[in-house]
């Protein structure tokens, strides 16, 4: 059985159900990436040029192990082979395909990315960057509830569009929320897919979403409110914006290993020059995020700055 999906502007064929992506209604179109079950070698064939605690890579192949879940071989930016550990649910294997293997494949294709959620505002992408646990998804959900379609939730992959304008390649239509946030938001957990049986994190699929590539209009960097910082939204100048962009690169080790830092810096310079950048400092609290979403929405409606 083959399933057909679309993400980051790529047409994907997979023998495994993948929950996070857009379903592709044109299966006749040639696939950019094929995903299939198979044997993943214990070691990389050929010359290993970099390795980490659970991964190694050659010029065009990458093997990564997820303990007790499985192993993934990512080749030439167009093929992923996965081998599940015994008794592991397909759901878990698919989750790490999405979360780990696809971002590695993107880097093999020389695409750089930010760790961000994103929504569409007035035809442009607004990115919400931040470290794990800073509330990107909660804020994205609040903005989606205000009518701004979801573009991405974990990985914002960037390409240069016409005139060198940085653009976001949409990831998928769903937002991931932890159980506690989900309930505070008023969702019933039974209506949503849980990501793993050992983690009460859910895929929220009932939000408006867009699968169109969009120029990046603004980037907000989420920072937890801790002294001596004060809560609020502050505009960043270009120099500080570049610093924050680098801090929020997706998988910086990959950028280094794959020699993509120069490309990332170049992309960061383009984003600093052509997009509005802000820090958003707030407490990790669902209600506070909702208040900020209201403020952002009002600003966009009133000033039309995006």
């Amino acid at each position: 059985m083959q399933y057909f999906y679309e993400t980051y502007g790529l047409k994907i064929g997979s023998d495994l159900v993948l929950n996070d992506y857009w379903t592709d209604e044109h299966p006749e179109v040639v696939r950019d990436v094929m995903i299939e079950r198979g044997k993943v070698p214990g070691q990389i064939a050929g010359n290993c040029i970099h390795r980490g605690p659970n991964w190694e890579m050659s010029e065009d192949a990458f093997i990564i192990h997820v303990p007790r879940v499985g192993a993934y071989l990512i080749e030439a930016g167009n093929r992923i082979v996965y081998e599940a550990a015994p008794k592991v649910e397909d759901r878990d294997v698919g989750l790490f395909l999405f979360d780990v293997a696809l971002p590695i494949l993107l880097h093999q294709r020389k695409v750089v990315a930010l760790r961000a959620s994103a929504v569409l505002v007035n035809g442009k992408a607004v990115l919400l960057c931040g470290a794990s646990g800073t509330g990107k998804s909660i804020l994205a959900e609040s903005l989606a509830q205000r009518g701004h379609p979801v573009l991405a939730d974990t990985c914002a992959s960037i390409s240069l569009g016409a005139g060198g304008m940085p653009c976001l390649l949409p990831e998928g239509p769903k937002i991931r929320l932890w159980g506690r946030a989900l309930e505070k938001k008023g969702f019933d957990p039974v209506d949503h897919t849980v990501l793993r049986s050992c983690k009460l994190k859910y895929l929220v699929s009932s939000l408006p979403a867009s699968r169109e590539q969009a120029a990046i209009g603004a980037i907000y960097f989420l920072i937890e409110h801790r002294p001596p910082r004060t809560a609020g939204i502050e505009r960043l100048d270009a120099i500080n914006a570049s610093h924050y962009l680098v801090m929020n690169a997706l998988r910086p080790r990959l950028l280094q290993a794959m020699n993509l830092m120069p490309k990332f810096f170049s992309m960061a310079a383009q984003m600093s020059a052509k997009s509005e950048m802000y820090t958003l400092t707030c407490e990790r609290d669902v209600t506070v995020f909702d208040t900020f979403a209201g403020q952002m929405d009002a600003q966009w409606q009133g000033e039309g700055t995006i």
Binding site: N54, L95, K201, P252, R253
Partner: peptide
């Protein structure tokens, strides 16, 4: 530190249980 772990392993530790994390 989550960030050190995540950067090093290329995994999102938030999706792993305690045994999977301790393996690495």
């Amino acid at each position: 530190d989550r960030r050190t772990f995540d950067d090093s392993t290329l995994l999102s530790s938030g999706l792993l249980d305690v045994h999977e994390i301790e393996d690495l």
